[in-house]
Computed example of a mutant assay.
Amino acid sequence: MKSVTQQNIPYDPLAEKSLPGVAPLALDDWLFIDDAYSGQMALRCQLLSIRRKEVLVANNSVLPAARELLGLVQDLLSKRDDFQIRDGGILCPDGRFVDLNHDDPLKTLGQIIQEDLCILEKIAGQHVLTGAVLCFPASWSLSEKYQKPLTAIHRPVTEYDANIARRVQRLFDGVRSGSPLWRKNALWYEDPSLHQPRVEAAQRNYVDAKTAPFLRTERQCILRLPQSDAVIFSIHTFVMDRERALAASG
């Protein structure tokens, strides 16, 4: 799958923070459009067309939350100059016109914004992944995480111990509508491809952080939808070549 690299990242990708490392974010700053928008959106549309079952999961029960999410995104984009909402759709910065299909809200969202979107709803005391559009997985598989709670989703992550699990659960419980939170991660990769799924049983190839040619970093946000009370976990993926990434980190 083709790669699309960015020229700039809006934060220091290599500044160290302890997990979960979150900070507050203004709702109007949640969605981020960068210089790779056109290339990333072309890839997203291709994946949604030819690999929909791999990159989008949802059932009828998550539809109200997904429609609410589409409405929120529509409202936020209406305040921007680079999107135009008209004639039942959205004219995007790359010139594409996307119909606002409220019967297929996650696919619609996947064609409009760069963020991958996961919907988590609280079931029996735990936040469960009940729907998602995930075009750019970083070494994980959407099918394996679907319908699972946070603890099971993070099972392969070495650093995700019981203490971190409790702190993350508190974040998901405590995030307030209109007041998102954000964090970042950073991983070195040999391959700059954006679509890199991997099942849990498949070991990730060793990558030497001292020589790897590409840095992959995600701007991850969590926010609560006021009507459905679902929590949204969004992922904006940046890929930069090593020299540029080190320069961005100062």
Rank of each mutant, 00 (worst) to 15 (best):
C45E: 14
Q114V: 02
R155Q: 14
L100S: 10
W140M: 14
S193D: 15
C118T: 06
L223H: 13
S234V: 09
V168M: 13
D34K: 12
Q84K: 14
R219V: 01
F32T: 11
A209F: 05
D229W: 01
Q46W: 03
L31H: 07
A230M: 07
Y146Q: 04
Q84R: 12
R52F: 11
R167D: 11
A152D: 13
S143E: 12
V55M: 13
S38T: 12
I119L: 15
Q114H: 01
A15R: 15
R155S: 12
V55W: 13
A162N: 14
I33C: 05
P180S: 08
Y160H: 14
R52D: 08
V57C: 11
L27F: 08
S193Y: 03
C92R: 15
V133F: 03
Q126T: 05
L48H: 07
S179H: 13
Y160L: 04
N60K: 09
R183Q: 00
G131D: 13
L14D: 01
E16C: 04
P226V: 03
Q74S: 15
G110N: 09
Y11S: 09
L70F: 09
Q6R: 05
M240Y: 05
E218K: 03
L70Q: 13
A186L: 00
D103C: 07
Q7G: 11
L70Y: 08
F136D: 11
Y11V: 09
S3M: 00
I85R: 03
T151L: 04
Y160P: 03
P213Y: 03
L76Q: 15
D103F: 07
P226K: 04
C221S: 15
Q40W: 04
A209D: 13
E54Y: 06
N185P: 00
A36I: 11
D34Q: 11
Q203A: 12
D229R: 14
S143Y: 05
D116I: 05
T217M: 10
A42H: 03
Q126S: 11
I119F: 14
I222V: 12
Q227W: 01
N60Y: 01
S228K: 10
G174M: 07
C118R: 02
E159I: 00
G71Q: 08
Q220V: 08
S78L: 02
D35K: 08
K53Y: 02
D241P: 00
V157H: 06
Q40T: 11
S141G: 08
R167N: 10
L181I: 08
G39W: 01
G89V: 06
D82L: 05
K148F: 02
V168G: 02
T211E: 11
D94G: 10
Q7S: 10
Q196G: 00
T130H: 03
L215W: 04
E121Q: 14
V175D: 06
D75P: 00
P137Q: 06
P192I: 15
R80L: 14
P156D: 05
L106S: 10
I112T: 06
L150P: 07
Y189L: 09
L117Q: 07
M240E: 14
P64R: 06
R167Q: 15
L69D: 00
G39E: 01
K145W: 06
W182H: 13
L106D: 08
